[in-house]
Computed example of a mutant assay.
Amino acid sequence: MDSHDISLLRDTMDRTTDDLPPLPDLAPLAVREGRRRRTRARLAIVTTAFGAVTAGALGLTLLPGANTGVAMPAAVPPSTGATPGAAPSTHYPSVVVEETPGVTPPDNPDGLPEAERERLAAHQQRVAALLDDLLPATVTEIRPVKDNVRWYRITAGGKTFQTTVSVRPTDDRTLEPCLSAPARKFTCEAVTFAGNREAQLRSMPVNTSDTMGSDVTFLYGGSRVTLSVAPENVSAPVTPRQLMTVAEDPRFLDLVRDTDEHPVEKKAPPAIPGG
Results as ranks from 00 to 15, higher is better:
43 L>F: 07
69 G>R: 02
59 G>E: 08
51 G>D: 13
60 L>I: 12
20 L>Y: 08
16 T>N: 05
64 P>V: 06
50 F>W: 14
54 T>Q: 11
34 G>L: 15
26 L>R: 11
48 T>M: 10
64 P>Y: 07
62 L>D: 09
44 A>F: 01
28 P>G: 00
53 V>R: 11
30 A>W: 13
43 L>S: 14
63 L>D: 09
75 A>V: 05
47 T>H: 10
47 T>A: 10
51 G>F: 02
74 A>S: 15
34 G>M: 13
52 A>Y: 06
49 A>Y: 08
23 L>P: 02
69 G>Q: 08
34 G>T: 13
49 A>L: 12
51 G>W: 02
16 T>R: 09
44 A>G: 07
38 R>Y: 13
70 V>Y: 12
21 P>C: 00
66 A>Q: 02
24 P>Y: 09
64 P>H: 10
17 T>K: 09
40 R>P: 06
31 V>M: 07
43 L>W: 07
65 G>A: 03
73 P>A: 04
43 L>N: 12
73 P>S: 08
43 L>D: 14
64 P>F: 01
68 T>I: 08
50 F>A: 14
71 A>K: 13
34 G>A: 13
25 D>H: 15
70 V>L: 15
70 V>D: 11
48 T>Q: 10
58 L>D: 03
74 A>V: 13
61 T>D: 05
30 A>C: 11
57 A>T: 01
50 F>H: 12
59 G>W: 03
38 R>D: 11
31 V>D: 03
37 R>I: 03
72 M>Q: 02
27 A>T: 12
25 D>P: 08
44 A>E: 11
